[in-house]
């Protein structure tokens, strides 16, 4: 019985470490996806002046993961434009994002579609720059602490298992 408990404790520790590492990987992946969206957004605005309904409808299919889901929610929300402002639609679409992602992308909702292309591009570029910095920080955290988290989890689990035995 004790041996089984010890094995479970060790496994739980390892799992906790792996989960922490996966969360770090997911943060990097999601920020990379959002970065891809911002780059496409800037290109569409600067080259084609694409209207928002067409833009987000198209981007939903050209981006991945969190970015694609965000675009799909904005695209669907645009059906209610007139009842609600774009700013409200954007805020609602961004609600399922993480707090960090909302802080990064949230301010775009007050600029997109409301001002001229140049002003929008400036806002997208600023957002892209901040998202890039956040992604680099997330990647550095994964690099520096990813293995450490797994190691600490495994070691902690093993230590508890030893104590139990």
């Amino acid at each position: 019985m004790r041996l089984t408990g010890a094995v479970l404790l060790a496994a739980a520790g390892l799992l906790a470490g792996l989960t922490a590492r996966r969360a770090m990987e997911a943060r990097v992946r999601r920020l990379t996806e959002l970065l891809g969206l911002l780059e496409l957004l800037a290109m569409e605005l600067s080259r084609f002046r694409t209207p928002m309904p067409e833009l987000f409808g198209g981007l939903a299919g050209r981006t991945r993961g969190a970015a694609s889901e965000l675009c799909a929610r904005v695209s669907a929300g645009l059906d209610t434009l007139g009842e609600r402002t774009f700013s409200d639609i954007w805020a609602e679409a961004a609600a399922p994002l993480t707090a960090e992602e909302r802080d990064l992308l949230g301010p775009l909702g007050t600029v997109l579609g409301r001002y001229g292309a140049e002003e929008q591009l400036l806002a997208v570029e600023r957002c892209r720059h901040e998202t890039e910095q956040a992604r680099e920080a997330a990647a550095a955290a994964l690099r520096d602490r990813g293995r450490l988290a797994v190691g600490l989890g495994a070691a902690g689990g093993a230590a508890l298992a030893v104590l139990l035995i």
Binding site: T50, P51, M52, P53, I89, G113, G116, Q120
Partner: peptide
């Protein structure tokens, strides 16, 4: 359609 940039 929230696209002032397209109507400039």
């Amino acid at each position: 359609g929230a696209s002032l940039h397209a109507a400039e």
